[in-house]
Nucleic acid binder design. Structure first.
Length: 552
RNA sequence: UGGGGCGUCGCCAAGUGGCAAGGCAGCGGGUUUUGAUCCCGCCAUUCGGAGGUUCGAAUCCUCCCGCCCCAGCCA
């Protein structure tokens, strides 16, 4: 089930770096800002960074890039660690924090000041924006650009002491206001924030920006390959500028790859939050959410998510992977790992008119893997089958139960429908059938084998259960492009069925345990809501269906 | 319109001058006590376009076209 690592530009590059001894051993890092829940896009980054370290016998760090206290919290730090673990990865050593390097970063800022490569700028945010110029016009030098090192040291030290108001001053690198690369137009290194930080409390009234922090964090940790997404490409010259001008202990290198987009899904934090806030979903871990917590609650195996990330590849071209690839990986893994069971979604009473005694059937838990063992199922005269599996009359394409026709009850006998009862509206309420065979697994003696098999549960033993059937949250392939996101929400993304009847053993399912309900799909015992006296299963994904689409 | 990237099958994606991998989707057929799984077969004479170099080009050169990113004291 594991996928062979396939060739991609990162592996090629790392291989070359190792062979040329540019680096001795690979060290990567997954550096989320703890300001939200991880989603499928993060899973890709995690799989790239941890996967590379695994493949090349290197290390991967987990580092919280916590340089902006206002948006971050401990809650996210905890959930991110849980998600990374759940995905099957373990970071090297302790969890790292950018905030743990604030002291070193401060010293390096002073170093740049001494080198006359950084200065305190008193321009307001609005003024700074005007001085920056535009994409086609160069910027102008700040009037504060030529302050002496002494004055800059004093001012920066006082910024650090908390003497100034937020927005009053910033520390900037002195690079080139005329650069065609906006990031080099005297980028901001530090800003004043009188905010409490989840790790450092009120120790720091100034916080380094991403640009001033990231490469140096990498250097401190000995990261050899700092892998990020394409939008940071323009930041690379700045990343390198700091590494070059500062006395850092290592020389990390930034490499960018295209972020993962998946059809029918959205990964914008703002939009996901909107879904939660407007109660379109039941929370960040709603089984319809593309968050790791949501995918987990949906029953998607971590191994399938890893498989998908590997299969989709890693390149530098913007692309949108078909969500069908993810679904295929999920079915693939679950087909092999999920024990089979039976669940009747819409029960229709079936009476076997000529069954002498209840039978105890021995049923396999997996059709292809004997290691799953078997279970005993009682088949009495009173059963439930699905309403969808019976018709009074039908053409030959309908391979289920039809009046006067035969069908096999999964794991049991071959029966033939004799008659049915209907309610005032003409809906079938009860089917009567006779057994054509009486030995489980046997074929009819007259040689007329049924062409269909349907699932069933014992009316006496089956237990009622709540089934939550999920479908795609959005009805359009690129919801991110929708002007009105809410209008693109699939109104049938969740259908709750309270009338389902399950095999009795299923009440003992462990939370998060996935079963294949035969002929229906894969279903997971809800992590939080499933109880033996009140079973709740979430539909992970349906079985591949090449019939109903073309035949209704 | 400045700078930086990216264009290989419906969707991903290998390929780095020598016969265009693979996966997903799709389509045919076989097996099957799940209309599932599994198995077999089909699915790019052509790589955004046009020129050029070469015995030979998706790969090198030139021009053109399209898409993405950058003007936060976010990351």
């Amino acid at each position: 089930m594991s996928v062979e690592p396939r060739s991609n530009f990162l592996r090629t590059q790392i291989q070359a770096d190792l062979e040329s001894a540019r680096v001795n051993a690979l060290v990567t890092r997954f550096p989320p800002e703890p300001n939200g829940y991880l989603h499928l896009g993060h899973a890709k980054s995690i799989s790239v960074n941890f996967g590379l370290a695994e493949q090349f016998g290197g290390q991967c760090h987990l580092r919280f890039d916590d340089t902006n206290p206002e948006k971050e919290s401990q809650e996210f730090i905890d959930s991110i660690q849980e998600d990374v673990h759940w995905l099957g990865y373990q970071w090297e050593g302790e969890v790292r924090y950018a905030s743990a390097y604030f002291g070193q970063l401060y010293e390096w800022a002073m170093y740049l000041i001494d080198q006359r490569l950084a200065y305190v700028c008193d321009l307001s945010a609005e003024e700074a924006r005007q001085y920056r110029g535009t994409l086609t016009e160069p910027g102008r030098n700040s009037p504060f650009r030529e302050r002496s090192s002494e004055e800059n040291r004093d001012l920066f030290a006082r910024m650090r002491q908390g003497e100034f108001a937020e927005g009053a001053r910033v520390l900037r690198a002195k690079i080139d206001m005329g650069s065609a690369n906006m990031n080099l137009r005297d980028p901001i290194l530090y800003r004043i924030r009188h905010a409490s930080h989840h790790q450092t409390g009120t120790e720091w009234p100034i916080y380094p920006t991403y640009d001033f922090a990231h490469g140096q964090e990498d250097a401190i940790e000995g990261i050899t390959h700092s892998i990020c997404t394409l939008e940071f490409e323009d930041h690379r010259p700045l990343y390198e500028w700091f590494v070059e001008h500062l006395p850092v202990p290592h020389t990390p290198r930034q490499i960018e790859f295209a972020r993962l987009n998946t059809s029918y899904t959205i990964t914008s934090k703002r939009k996901l939050k909107q879904l939660v806030d407007e109660e379109v979903v039941d929370g960040w871990d709603d089984p319809r959410m593309p968050t790791i917590a949501g995918l987990r609650r949906r029953g998607y195996p971590a191994s399938a998510i890893r498989h998908f990330c590997e299969e989709v590849g890693t390149s530098r071209s913007d692309s949108t992977a078909d969500v069908a690839m993810l679904e295929s990986a999920v079915r693939d893994h679950l087909n092999q790992s999920a024990p089979r069971a039976m669940c009747v979604m819409k029960p229709l009473r079936l009476t076997l008119t000529n069954l002498p005694d209840a039978l105890c059937l021995e049923v396999r838990n997996h059709p292809a893997d004997p290691d799953f063992g078997g279970r005993q199922l009682w088949m009495g005269a009173e059963l439930f089958i699905d309403q969808e599996d019976f018709r009074e009359e039908a053409n030959k394409h309908f391979k289920r139960l039809v009046l006067g026709k035969r069908v096999r009850l999964r794991g049991g006998l071959v029966i033939e429908a004799e008659r049915c009862e209907k309610d005032a509206d003409g809906g079938v309420t009860h089917v009567f059938a006779k057994c054509v065979t009486f030995i489980p697994g046997a074929d009819p003696e007259d040689g007329l084998k049924p062409k269909g098999v349907i699932h069933w549960v014992s009316a006496d033993e089956a237990v009622p259960a709540t089934i939550r059937r999920y479908d795609r949250l959005f009805g359009v392939p690129e919801p991110a492009r929708e002007q009105d996101l809410m209008a693109a929400v699939n109104p049938h993304s969740l259908v709750v069925i309270d009338t389902a009847m399950i095999e009795p053993e299923l009440v003992n399912a462990n939370p998060e345990q996935v079963f294949q309900f035969e002929r229906e799909g894969y279903f997971v015992a809800d992590r939080y809501d499933h109880r033996s006296d009140r079973p709740v299963f979430n539909m992970t994904i349906g079985l591949r269906d090449t019939w109903s689409a073309s035949h209704g």
